[in-house]
């Protein structure tokens, strides 16, 4: 009797089942978050339409028809109107997504790697090392981040890297801080001490025990930085940094169109709405992910 129920318990709690249950709860909490599923779908649509832009539109993003300049939003044939050179705005926005999404994503990826490494090592070793790293990163906190990005970008000249590098630089310090704090939280746990006393080296403890137990929280924080990244990156190109004129990119398109605000206000803000909707979807997703991760524990 006892043996049988013990076996049942074992069966019920066997690892694959436990994982499956956790995953189900994760997905359920995620989907229950208001607007999470629509945001996910929207983001996938934006992503796919950027990837398959050439197949989706009959127009070329660089060639305009002078006679069709500044057509209103909703003009047949030009759903979102045409810009000051007669180019189809929808087409340019679809192609623009390629640049804007890369400029939103890449800095987060770069900063996540660098920031996590710096933060995890400071959190793990503490003391002098943490002091040096964290106090150095404090210096970057002395600037309003967008200002530092503008200054760095203007120094780096033109090209995609003059956007990606500055944004990565401003994202590293906050990610490192969160990583350090997260690691510090789990350092007093018994399993860390157990691993250390059983002879595992620092690298092994970090790779097999620290990272698996902190990755979720660090990752969630990094997802919140995606919108910071895309807003700042498009902000730089809006100011005319990094990306030069004919290239379709949301920020620089907004900059080019802004002269038309007094003639066609609705038309002018179209590229800005693409930035807004993307950032909005990502922020909703990251909130939903956070909820789901907290529910799963």
């Amino acid at each position: 009797m006892f043996v049988a129920s013990y076996a049942q318990d074992q069966e019920r709690l066997s690892e694959p089942d436990f994982k499956k249950e956790a995953r189900a709860r994760f997905l359920h909490t995620f989907a229950a978050y208001p607007m999470a599923v629509p945001a996910l779908i929207l983001l996938i649509v934006i992503l796919l339409s950027a990837v398959f832009a050439p197949a989706l539109t009959p127009y070329n993003p660089f060639d305009g028809v002078a006679a069709e300049r500044l057509q209103s939003v909703g003009t047949p044939g030009h759903l979102l109107g045409t810009d000051e050179q007669g180019r189809d705005i929808l087409t340019r926005c679809l192609f623009g997504g390629r640049y804007s999404l890369v400029m939103g994503f890449l800095p987060v990826a770069i900063a996540t790697v660098i920031g996590s490494i710096l933060g995890i090592i400071s959190g793990y070793f503490g003391k002098a090392y943490a002091q040096i790293v964290m106090r150095t990163l404090d210096v970057f906190y002395a600037f309003p981040s967008i200002l530092l990005a503008i200054a760095l970008s203007s120094v780096l000249g033109s090209g995609l890297s003059s956007i990606i590098i500055p944004i990565s630089v401003i994202l590293v310090p906050p990610i490192a801080r969160v990583a350090e704090a997260t690691v510090q939280d789990i350092m007093p746990e018994d399993f860390i001490e157990a691993a250390q006393t059983s002879g595992a080296g620092a690298l092994k403890v970090i790779v097999f025990f620290v990272i698996p137990n902190t990755f979720g929280r660090i990752f969630i924080y990094c997802t919140t930085q995606f919108s910071v990244s895309i807003l700042s990156a498009s902000g730089l190109t809006f100011l005319g940094l990094g990306i030069s004129a004919p290239t379709p990119e949301w920020g620089s398109m907004l900059n080019a169109l802004r002269q038309q605000i007094f003639i066609k206000p609705l038309l002018t803000i179209v590229p800005g709405l693409f930035i807004f909707v993307t950032a909005l979807s990502v922020n909703i997703l990251s909130d939903a992910l956070k909820d789901a991760l907290e529910a799963t524990g």
């Binding site: 919108s227 809006f238 206000p265 002018t268 803000i269 709405l273 807004f276 909005l280 990502v282």
Partner: peptide, 15 residues
């Protein structure tokens, strides 16, 4: 936290 302030500026001017 999602709306770029430069886009909001243009929207406000537009309205």
């Amino acid at each position: 936290i999602s709306i770029p302030n430069y886009c909001l500026s243009l929207i406000l001017i537009g309205i």
